[in-house]
Design a protein around this nucleic acid. Structure first.
Length: 176
DNA sequence: GCGGTGATAGAT
DNA sequence: TCTATCACCGCC
């Protein structure tokens, strides 16, 4: 499988969020195809963690693009993001299983559990094993809508920064 | 629709 | 130190 490299991640965050659809996320022998993403644009985006300033938790988002930003939410679920630099990142929300694991990987918490992604992967580069992204197949139809669970972000909550593969059954079910 | 769960950040 | 809050999920 062909690895995605720095030139892929060093583009505008919305571009990367769309381009990640159809690509493969690999951890060890486990492989999933990305079918749903959300863009978090940086400190000016009130839904983005970096909107509250630069902290130890979100530090990796200010580093070079193409690294993992992993955090724990609600005390039990890890969320996996791909950094795009300058305080921005793309949340991976759902995977279609390809090989190496069984069970569901629709939803940010479920996909990290399915692949075995935890806090220890935070800050890792994504262009080399064990955790990396590989070229997948082209996506025919992309749909977009508001991001999930960011109602606190006022007008930013309505912006259509969530992207998914049309009619794919592995897109997470929660309605906007 | 609501509770479980714990790290985080800001207040005290 | 205390407390509100949180890119969620599973069971009611």
């Amino acid at each position: 499988m062909q690895r995605l490299d720095a030139s892929f991640f060093s583009r505008p965050t919305l571009t990367v969020a769309r381009a990640l659809l159809g690509q493969r996320l690999v951890l060890g022998r486990r492989v999933g195809r990305i079918v749903e993403t959300e863009a978090y644009l940086g400190p000016h985006d009130l839904a983005c963690h970096t909107a509250k300033g630069r902290t130890a938790r979100n530090e990796v988002m200010f580093g070079p693009p193409g690294h993992a930003y992993v955090f724990l939410v609600y005390g039990m679920h890890f969320c996996f993001n791909v950094t795009t630099g300058r305080g921005a990142a793309v949340l991976i929300r759902a995977l279609e299983p390809v090989e190496g694991y069984s069970g569901r990987s629709d939803g940010p918490g479920r996909l990290t559990a399915a692949l075995g992604i935890t806090r220890k992967h935070n800050g890792m580069r994504l262009d080399a094993p064990p955790l990396w992204l590989a070229e997948g197949e082209r996506v025919r139809h992309i749909e977009r809508g508001p991001r999930i669970g960011v109602d606190y972000a006022r007008e930013w909550a309505k912006k259509p920064y969530r992207f998914w593969v049309r009619d794919n059954v592995h897109v997470s079910l929660r309605s906007p």
